[in-house]
Design a binder for these strands. Structure first.
Length: 490
RNA sequence: CGGGGCAUGGCGCAGUCCGGUAGCGCACCUGGUUUGGGACCAGGGGGCCGCAGGUUCGAAUCCUGCUGCCCCGACCA
């Protein structure tokens, strides 16, 4: 089999790039740092969107859309926020081009904007500027809005899906009458992300709180879900922020409570991005191609006919059509690949590359025996199933794959999770394959930065479910109340 | 912002050192044989060699300048 994909063991990072390209998920555009998301990759994103959007609506959120451009002055209203984003903003300074007289165009110096516009790196400022007009009374609260949008962050170093200059995401922005309610919203949305990651992406995650160093610019508290990739590195898969009254104060958003007192509102924001596609790839895929969870696979089942004469193909097609009808009736997406210009072997390899969970081959032997060959993408296991059982067997096998890849990822994470008690143990872990190191930390930003400098590992989160446990910081030996998760991260 | 690499048919590359009719694989088109793990034969179409100058009888190749993208590091979701 001609493999176009670099094996993981040889070069993990090259494997990832090859996979994204060869599976047809995305490619580099001619714009530096920006990608073209191709139809197959976008189909996965659409499935993610559909599921998340459904969950947002179920919890009372509505979609809206805010401008791509943000007046420069808005960004500077919240001090921590501008501090965090200033270094990576694209700025629009002019609104017109003109001919350079040599067949090209130049920026027209006479068309300078009075106030420069920032291409949104996130939308808190424009949204809170708007919320000021939407919120007067406690009756206007809570305000629960989400938007699906693109944002731009001018990163120095980019990678397809994981970090691109422009990316797609959703950002929720909510306003509440009380702190407690906003805190509960922050946690609710994180739980939705975690549930989505585990049950749809089949990717186990740890829920926790970010340290001050890793916190969102302008937040009081940042919650996150962290997943472990196959190379042992951590990837932040979603964040949910409790913003306190920071943006309400910056944009003067007040409401009158029941007793007529004017109060600042309490805010949250939360988001996941196309980065999730990168996470999905690195969580499950192998050297032959993508491995997709059935719940996110654009095509869940592919049927490949094997035939010599056209009459044979006709008989197989008749059988395949019956099966397709039965599967589609159960909401299963199925493709019948009767393209005569490709051989079965080519189709097999291609379906593996694309991560199609189940492949059903029907040939002359099967017609005779009333069977089909069913192959599971994750384990490559083959079995012969009687034709009359297929419509019952397929959903079972899809479920089995969904559960199987989750458990495999969980096992991988457990095997690469350590509990070092001193610096030697800790640094040894970070020198090797990596993984999650649950370790004691003295709680200071200085220590965290020092550890990062020494090992490149950062604190991914302070996990919600950690035990109360007295210990000593692995670097300074100072007292600690519980372990935090260190890892090298994407 | 440093370090490296690349730019030649749709894609991947050779050719550049040593200047002399632009080539290979894949893909594509036509016909035939094939089809249970990336088929084969025959024929065919397609290229401002990244851009701009220069040297030369002659430049993909030598010289000068520019541009773009990718990879590796420091910042970040």
């Amino acid at each position: 089999m001609a493999n176009k994909i670099t094996p993981r063991a040889q070069d993990y990072s090259l494997w990832y790039n090859d996979l994204v390209k060869e599976a047809g998920l995305a490619e580099h555009s001619s714009v530096k740092g920006c990608m073209v998301i191709k139809p197959y990759g976008f189909a996965i994103w659409e499935k993610m969107q559909a599921e998340l959007d459904h969950r947002f609506k179920e919890t009372g959120h509505q979609n809206a859309y805010f401008p791509l451009f943000i007046p420069k002055s808005f960004l500077s209203k919240e001090a921590a926020h501008i501090e965090g984003f200033a270094k990576e903003c694209a700025v629009v300074t002019h609104y017109r081009l003109k001919s350079d007289g040599k067949g090209g165009v130049i920026v027209d110096p006479d068309a300078k904007l009075e106030e420069e516009l920032i291409v949104r790196p996130t939308s808190e400022t424009i949204i809170w500027n708007t919320y000021k007009n939407w919120i007067q009374s406690y009756r206007d609260l809570p305000l629960l809005i989400n938007q699906w949008a693109n944002v731009v962050r001018w990163e120095m170093r980019t990678r397809l899906f994981l970090r691109t200059t422009e990316f797609l995401w959703q950002e929720g922005h909510t306003a509440h009458a009380t702190s407690d309610e906003a805190v509960a919203e922050t946690r609710q949305m994180l739980d939705i992300y975690a549930d989505f990651a585990e049950n749809f992406m089949a990717m186990p995650v740890v829920k926790g709180t970010k340290t001050a160093n890793e916190r969102f610019a302008g937040a009081i508290d940042t919650l996150c879900i962290e997943a472990m990739m196959q190379d042992g590195k951590a990837l932040q898969a979603g964040t949910s922020h409790f913003l306190g009254q920071n943006f309400a104060k910056a944009f003067d958003v007040k409401f009158s409570d029941k007793s007529g007192n004017l109060e600042y509102v309490w805010a949250t924001s939360w988001g996941v991005s196309t980065r999730l596609i990168g996470a999905l790839i690195m969580a499950h895929s192998d050297d032959d191609g993508l491995v997709l969870p059935p719940s996110l696979a654009p095509i869940q089942v592919i049927i490949v006919p094997i035939y010599k004469q056209m009459e044979e193909l006709q008989k197989i097609s008749d059988a395949a059509n019956v099966l397709m009808k039965e599967l589609k009736a159960q909401g299963i997406s199925v493709k019948y690949d009767d393209d005569d210009t490709k051989k079965p072997g080519w189709k097999f390899a291609e379906s593996e590359l694309k991560g199609i969970p189940l492949r059903i081959a029907i040939g002359p032997r099967d017609l005779e025996n009333g069977t089909a060959e069913v192959v599971m993408r994750d384990t490559k296991s083959k079995q012969v199933v009687s034709f009359s059982e297929l419509h019952k067997e397929v959903p079972k096998l899809l479920k089995q794959i969904q559960d199987g890849i989750y458990l495999k990822a969980l096992k991988k994470r457990e095997e690469n999770t350590y509990y070092p008690n001193n610096w030697d143990e800790f640094s040894e872990i970070m020198k090797g394959e990596g993984g999650f190191a649950w370790a004691h930390w003295d709680g200071t930003a200085e220590t965290e930065l020092k550890i990062k400098e020494l090992t490149k590992a950062t604190i991914r989160c302070i996990p919600f479910d950690r035990k109360e446990e007295k210990g000593q910081c692995i670097l300074t030996g100072k007292p600690s109340e519980g372990r935090v998760i260190f890892a090298k991260a994407y």
